[in-house]
Write a protein that binds this DNA or RNA. Structure first.
Lengths: 160, 160
DNA sequence: AAATGTTATGTAATAATATAACAATATGCA
DNA sequence: TGCATATTGTTATATTATTACATAACATTT
């Protein structure tokens, strides 16, 4: 399995998840080193929690999970770690769920789009981007800063 | 001005807003009659408040506005009216803002996409739909139920 | 190592958004 | 009218997120 080459649909496929987590955590470390930002204990813990599943987690899910091994984890601690991960492109916020997923290809520039299965609640991250909507925007002189593209429905497995 | 023909970019254009509101409120009445659902006082009041601007309004913005003329309007009252409007396609929820806008072409089937100006906070509703993301979804057997497409940036006016 | 500035975390309180549960009222219709 | 259903009113609370300020960790200079 070549996790680095295309992990777009990983969430909907059988895969070695332990390796999936490991590769992305290592990649996060490398990127933070390169950028001279610190992947501190708390930030790494939150990233690890996000990486543990392909289902989006709410901030309070993360908080409760973290509180199983740590003490007195409060909302600001979690939200600050999440903000860091979002800034560094190591995680994404799923607006339509008020929840967070780890980025499946950190370091890539283009913005992500998400396919969200309503049944298994897994989220696949695409990076193909570019749609007629964006063309339309350009045509009318709208300068795009950020695109939220979240498609929900049923993944191939759950349709069966 | 032909509100009915293309009000996609109305939000970013000078227009007779009084007429814009009136046309859409009348259209809502007609649609509700056709569908044999009731556009009650509360529902109409909430729709009117949404129609008063092209900026998305939070539920509590609506609540505070409504409480200026009414008494004891509470969150459930507002959320229920909003739910009704969403169900009937008379309003949309902007997920990335936890806020609501009136639908600019109610009765049309296809899902909307939004251009949100970060400066003037106006929202334009496109209905052109269909993007490579949707194609991609289909290709991998993902059955689309709902698409959240919210593009934020600067509208032509605010870029200047 | 001490002093300093900066970054990150801890802590308490609260704001903002949304829903649950049940009571009362209004509406449509037999 | 009386019944069933839909809608609204009311109270309480759940969920998500932020503010404000205190403390601690880290990095650099001395």
């Amino acid at each position: 399995m070549h996790v680095k080459q295309h992990n777009n649909l990983l969430a909907f496929s059988e895969h070695n998840h332990h390796q999936c987590e490991k590769v992305l955590l290592d990649r996060a470390k490398t990127l933070c080193d390169q950028r001279e930002v610190r992947l501190t204990l708390r930030r790494r813990q939150v990233l690890e929690i996000l990486l543990s599943t392909h289902q989006p987690m709410g901030a309070y899910d993360v908080l409760n999970t973290l509180n199983k091994t740590e003490q007195n984890i409060t909302p600001p601690i979690v939200y600050r770690a999440l903000d860091f991960l979002l800034e560094q492109g190591l995680a994404h916020r799923i607006e339509s769920e008020n929840a967070f997923v780890p980025c499946m290809h950190p370091g890539h520039q283009c913005e992500a789009q998400f396919l969200i299965c309503s049944n298994c609640h897994c989220v696949a991250e695409l990076d193909s981007a570019i749609s007629p909507v964006l063309d339309e925007a350009q045509k009318i002189g709208f300068e795009i800063r950020h695109a939220v593209i979240e498609i929900s429905g049923l993944c191939a497995t759950c349709r069966q």
